[in-house]
Computed example of a mutant assay.
Amino acid sequence: MNIGFIGAGSMGSLLIEAFIIAEAVEPNQISVSNRTYSKVEQLACKFPGLQAKQTNTAVVQHADIVFLCIKPHEFAHVISEIKPFVRDEQLIVSITSPVQLSHLEQELNCHIAKIIPSITNKMWSGATLCIYSEQIDEAHQTMLEQLLAYISEPIRIEESYTRIVSDISSCGPAFMSFFLQQFVDAAVEETGISRDAAMMIASNMMLGTGLLLTEGGMTPEEVQRRVAVPGGITAKALAMLKKDSTGLFNSLIRTTHAKYFEDVEVVSAQFKKEEVREQ
């Protein structure tokens, strides 16, 4: 199986490295193109055998699966560019959440999927969210999920939940890291503990909590009940957190959703503009 990547930015390069290091594929099975060619050259130097391509069409011509790791406003142009070279049996996979399956279905006659990866895939953990078009059969879904299973837990979702699951799985590491950073900074400011020591303790705490919630089978409520003795220090602090954070995550979700729908409109407009240009 040959895999192509159009786009070698932050997430594209992360997936490439994760697949190779996890031995899901050999470097010589991967071809990559990018608007800035030097990024592809750097990957080829890091992973001898990886095929650096000058054009997006060259990637499509040599791949069974093509991951589109590009920004929303680039999609319409790239799809128009590669469309004549896409084969019926190919699987085209978008990792860009505002790009709708319908955008790709109306342009490409092949198997189509959308995934939402996460930075946690770098450590072969976390979820990869899989959203499938009607233009994909079970065999191609299985092929994609077997590949993703090397670096994550593939989870099928409906496209209508794209944004909220992205908030939790893909954006979530940034959100949780932000709160961890605030916790550590406050600890340093209030007590004088070294930042390195506080960060090491906090990071291991985050890891252990994640294991309790996954392998340990505990719920967030159970973790809180087990840690917080009634009338104790943790219980008092939790009461303060509940009071001061009420509505915080509702506002966060409304913010991400507003930006998402704004981006969807931009992508739709770009596809319409490209259609007019082609006529």
Rank of each mutant, 00 (worst) to 15 (best):
T55P: 07
N56A: 06
T57P: 04
A58I: 00
V59L: 08
V59S: 13
Q61M: 15
H62I: 07
A63V: 13
D64G: 14
D64K: 14
C69M: 10
I70Q: 04
I70S: 04
H73Q: 15
H73C: 03
H73V: 04
E74I: 11
F75S: 11
F75P: 06
F75D: 06
H77A: 13
S80E: 13
S80H: 15
K83D: 04
K83R: 14
V86A: 05
V86C: 01
R87I: 03
D88Y: 09
E89N: 12
E89R: 09
Q90G: 04
V93A: 05
I95N: 00
P98V: 05
H103I: 02
E105Q: 12
E105D: 15
Q106H: 09
L108G: 10
N109C: 06
K114E: 02
K114V: 02
K114Y: 03
K114C: 07
I115A: 08
I116W: 03
I116Q: 08
P117M: 05
I119D: 12
T120A: 15
K122Y: 06
M123I: 13
M123K: 14
M123N: 08
M123T: 14
G126C: 07
G126L: 12
A127W: 02
T128R: 04
L129D: 06
I131K: 07
I131Y: 11
I131W: 10
I131V: 12
Y132L: 01
S133D: 12
I136W: 06
I136F: 06
D137Q: 07
E138F: 06
E138D: 07
H140Y: 09
H140E: 10
Q141W: 03
T142M: 11
M143F: 06
Q146M: 11
L147C: 00
Y150D: 00
Y150G: 00
I155R: 11
E159Q: 13
